[in-house]
Design a protein around this nucleic acid. Structure first.
Lengths: 141, 141
DNA sequence: GTATCATTTTCCTGTTTGGCTAATTGATGA
DNA sequence: TCATCAATTAGCCAAACAGGAAAATGATAC
């Protein structure tokens, strides 16, 4: 149905959400890891994750205090796999995505414990620019 | 780049624009034909067409007083073909799309001349519901 | 139980967007 | 040259949306 298609396409039609999808390609991440990379408020990330989940693009798993998200493998939205494949095939050479991946490699070195406590401050100084949102959010949207 | 991706995905993330894309799959149509099928104001359609064109999804051709639009075959936006393919592979069984196609078959019987003059009134009575926008636009957006 | 803490939800703000009508554009044809 | 007419642009409004701060959840650990 066209509403179902609309839900997924709207979910994908936002740069922050696309960045999240690209970030999750290698495997699952908890909310505070995603937050550290994207540099947005936790509440904002949480809302984006909810939108992606409703669209059938993500699945959720709780482990103790942390909630892990991953790309959906089982699709209740028939269009979700197509969109996931398209995103996976896109933006491989995008600078914002590259920077997100670089940050992720730093984030991966820090125990979740510490990361949730300190956020970006837990990352080695000098390797993280202060401006949140990396290079994606300049100028008018 | 992620902005380019965003432009296309936003263009696709609207039901009226998806309906236009599906409508153009068989071949080009002029603005007043599209308007007659969708049942929206001409200005609205024109704006949608502009958005799709900017996204690299459509191309334009002028013939006398009429402007014909068709799916883009030459892509200045690298993501456009992927999205077009995805849309083409989707919604084949959607009732709104089916109704649009039925209306299109009626529209195709009427000379563009007459159609631009009279709009939906040029179509055989009884085969067109009064409610514009078919079944796509119910409820809150 | 109770405090802690990651995540979610609620509420607010400024911006974007889809729709309309009215005005403008630009090509046609008398 | 001027009237006509399809299409576009401008201007407006209400709804939707991305973002943040603050309150609410809900699981853990003491």
């Amino acid at each position: 149905m066209i509403e179902t298609f609309e839900t997924v396409s709207k979910a994908v039609a936002d740069p922050s959400r696309v960045r999240i999808l690209k970030l999750l390609e290698p495997g699952e991440l908890c909310v505070c890891q995603i937050t550290a990379v994207l540099g947005l408020a936790t509440a904002t990330i949480s809302k984006h994750l909810a939108a992606l989940k409703v669209a059938g693009l993500l699945q959720q798993r709780r482990d103790g205090k942390w909630v892990y998200y991953r790309l959906a493998d089982r699709a209740f939205n028939p269009y979700a796999p197509r969109f996931l494949a398209m995103v996976a095939a896109s933006l491989e050479d995008d600078p914002t995505i590259a920077e997100d991946r670089r940050l992720l490699s730093l984030v991966d070195q820090v125990p979740v414990q510490v990361l949730c406590d300190q956020g970006r401050a837990a990352l080695p100084a000098g390797l993280v620019s202060d401006t949140p949102g990396a290079s994606c959010c300049e100028g008018p949207r």
